[in-house]
Nucleic acid binder design. Structure first.
Length: 464
DNA sequence: GTTAGGG
DNA sequence: CCCTAAC
């Protein structure tokens, strides 16, 4: 492969970038474990490559050539290329390229302008490891003077891991996953992050500031950040954080262990799966999934759990940069309060007094004491009441079930709800808007008993 | 700022 | 409970 070819590939990779990007987010959120696995893998790649001294030599020459090219593209390489690697390799099926690429990147990063940005530890380590191979890792560790004890420790672990893995079995495993992983690492917990750093300075290069461990959002370059975060909504993120704190923590430990022992076979399978059709993946296993599919997949499960506030909400430390708005919402959800019978009665009363739709008034006058009930809440509750009452109307026999599900709703309440519903049908309850308007109009005349508020409301509705 | 409507 | 569009 010469320069030209390399460039061409690079361009290809870039094209794929978007996909990878997206996948990254979900993966992050979804399974840390996945990441862990992958993390292990990357090292293998390098080590194995390095281990085969030949490859290193071969690469060396290329690296220099490519280095120049990369230099110009450094920015792109840092982010785009790496990201694209995944897709690229899949398309081309040339793993070799990936390896090559990885090396180049590392070199560039290590020697280039990013060196400063990289963590002392990581940069030196990665560089040396790449060059000299797994055997040198220990030496690297020594040579690397890490001011922080943490790093040293990490290095040690890394060393072990590398050695272990290098023994093995990963000769041909595509490096893509590794790179992808690196990116994922960004969002990982601190622990993961640290490990990552040690494992790969590549990751370091990608996330220039990632060292902070803060939310990715803060650290990431603007462009990158934009892309990555456009997909997940706030809600999604919130959920993710929740689920993660609840579910993931335990899992990680297990997975990690697994990671160290990970066999090439496992990785192979995973990789293949990922490359295949996305649709299949979700079916495989949650734990094994790391790509985009998860995103969709992921959203549902946790949601249910969030609803119930019994558990103290884990402080979103990871959301260091969480927006106040977001947190507020979270809190609100957390404090979700079930409607009590008195409340329902009050609501009904308020509606009968002020009319349907005057939610703010009702809130102001009847629910002023309960700050957690917003006008919207009232409206929603009313909506639910209507639904409930109508259900009962239709299925008297099954009433019990419904009531159980809906909570004890005394018959008198139901009755009142129904009455009110007759007087002022909630928008859209049945029939089209037009019919409703007509209905409302007739009700004004027909129901003399209805309070003035109701009439008012009806009239208003009619006109609006 | 509120409300309706859909999720 | 959340979000958005319409008012």
């Amino acid at each position: 492969m010469d320069q030209e070819e390399y460039l061409r590939k690079c361009s290809n990779m870039k094209c794929q970038r978007v996909q990878v990007d997206e996948s990254c987010v979900p993966a992050l959120q979804d399974e840390d474990m996945e990441v862990e696995h992958l993390l292990a893998e990357p090292r293998n790649d390098h080590t194995s490559m390095d281990g085969s001294s030949d490859s290193r030599t071969t690469l060396n020459g290329k690296d220099e050539l490519e280095l120049e090219v990369l230099d110009g593209l450094l920015d792109d390489v840092e982010i785009n290329d790496l990201e694209g690697t995944d897709g690229f390799s899949g398309a081309c099926g040339e793993y070799f390229l990936d390896y090559e690429f990885a090396d180049n990147v590392e070199e560039v990063l290590g020697s280039g302008p990013f060196e400063g940005l990289l963590f002392q530890n990581s940069s030196s380590e990665s560089h040396s490891s790449v060059l000299s191979g797994s055997s040198i890792v220990s030496g690297v560790l020594e040579s690397t003077k890490v001011p922080i004890a943490q790093y040293e420790r990490k290095n040690d672990s890394l060393d072990e891991t590398v050695t272990f893995e290098s023994n093995g079995a990963f000769t041909n495993i595509p490096s893509q996953p590794a790179k992808v992983n690196c990116r994922y690492n960004i969002s990982l917990d601190i622990q993961h992050l640290q490990e990552l750093d040690n494992n790969r300075h590549l990751a370091g290069g990608i996330l220039t500031c990632k060292k902070e461990k803060g939310p990715v959002e803060k650290c990431q370059p603007d462009a990158l950040r934009e892309k990555r975060f456009r997909k997940p909504t706030q809600r999604y993120i919130e959920e993710f954080s929740n689920s993660r704190s609840k579910e993931k923590a335990p899992t990680i430990g297990t997975k990690t262990r697994h990671l160290s022992n990970s066999s090439s076979n496992v990785l192979h399978l995973r990789i293949k799966t990922l490359k295949k059709s996305p649709s299949e993946k979700s079916s495989n296993e949650n734990s094994d999934m790391m790509l985009p599919e998860l995103q969709v997949h992921k959203e549902h499960p946790k949601k249910e759990k969030l609803e119930y506030d019994n558990e103290p909400y884990p402080s979103d430390s990871e959301d260091g940069c969480s927006i106040s708005k977001r947190s507020r919402r979270k809190d609100r959800r957390k404090h979700q309060k079930m409607w009590t019978l008195p409340e329902v009665l009050k609501l009904v009363e308020g509606i009968s007094e002020y009319g349907v739709g005057r939610w703010t008034d009702i809130k102001r006058f009847l629910f002023s004491s309960s700050s957690y009930r917003t006008p919207i809440d009232l409206r929603d509750k009313w909506r639910n009441l209507l639904r409930a009452s109508s259900v009962q109307k239709n299925k008297r026999e099954d009433e019990q079930n419904d009531e159980l599900a809906l909570r004890p709703l005394p018959f008198n309440v139901v009755h009142r709800v129904r009455e009110l519903a007759k007087i002022h049908p909630y928008p859209r309850q049945r029939g089209s808007k037009k019919s409703r308007v007509v209905q409302a109009g007739s009700s004004v005349i027909a129901t003399d008993s209805s309070p003035a508020g109701l009439n008012k409301r009806n009239v208003r509705r009619k006109f609006t």
